[in-house]
Computed example of a mutant assay.
Amino acid sequence: MPSVSHVPPSSRDSVVAALRTAGCVFAEDEAELILATARTPAEAAAMVERRVAGLPLELVVGWAEFRGLRITVDPGVFVPRRRTEFLVEQALARAPGTAGVVVDLCCGSGAVGAALAAGLGRVELHAADIDPAAVRCARGNVAAAGGHVHQGDLFDALPGDLRGRVGILAANVPYVPSDEIGLLPLEARAHEPLVALDGGADGLGVLRRVAAGAPRWLAPGGCVLVETSRHQVPAALDAFERNGLTAHLAVSEELYAHVVIGVAP
């Protein structure tokens, strides 16, 4: 592991070299971001040290860009992925005319909810997660939209008066099969909560629970959107259809994103 204690933080080239040696593919971009974020040379040096040690860049600088928003990401919270922007795009494209209530389930940092609120304008936004660290983080990220964040297991966390009123239910559920967690990049395995990654034996345990519960919470014509992997698509579509939802698939080849969409009658 290279040491950067001797690197002048103001020297972009030196920072780039340290990051590149550590294996950072986008070393130039990361160096620019670190140097722009750091308030002092000492803080920049510390940031580079943490990145070289393997901490995800978003946790080093304390935020992630998501659909043009700066989303705060606290230690121990799932880092929003660029491919999940596709889920938001699909939700906005299919937003029912009465999409006054939006729910971000398994919200993590609250990035999806914040982006939906930014795209839709005035909505009643609720987010929920089982992880206390995620709940604390999400509260800050959805505050500007007047969002409410609840702690609990999926629908158990939501206020009862939302039943039958939700226009958009976005659920960025964990979908990595338990025995494939070890294949994930070290950054995810070492620094993100297992509950945000592990989807059970076939990766679809949480998705099936969302599919089963969603019809009771969706407004007529409301939609639920869930990200999954390519090989899980047939089983995910089946889970939605078995629960009375009209199921569709949206794919972004560019982002390698697969979003299953269920529409309530």
Rank of each mutant, 00 (worst) to 15 (best):
A170S: 08
L183P: 06
L204A: 09
L186M: 08
R208K: 00
L184P: 11
I181R: 12
G200I: 06
V206D: 06
D179C: 11
D161G: 05
D198H: 13
A211N: 01
G164D: 08
L162D: 12
R165N: 04
D202I: 15
L204D: 04
V173R: 01
L184S: 06
A188C: 11
R189T: 11
A201D: 02
V176R: 10
G160F: 00
A190I: 03
A171T: 06
L158D: 11
D198P: 15
E187K: 05
P174R: 02
G199N: 07
L184Q: 11
P174T: 02
I181K: 13
I181P: 07
L194R: 15
G199L: 14
E187L: 05
G160Y: 00
A211R: 02
P193Y: 04
G203F: 12
A196E: 14
A190T: 07
A188N: 09
E192N: 14
V176F: 06
A201C: 01
E180P: 12
A170G: 10
L169Q: 07
L194S: 08
A171N: 02
V173A: 01
L162W: 03
G199Q: 13
G167D: 04
P193D: 01
G199R: 10
I168P: 09
H191R: 01
E187A: 08
A201E: 03
L197M: 05
A211S: 04
L158F: 03
G199M: 13
P177G: 07
A170I: 05
S178L: 07
I168Y: 06
G182Q: 03
V195H: 13
Y175I: 02
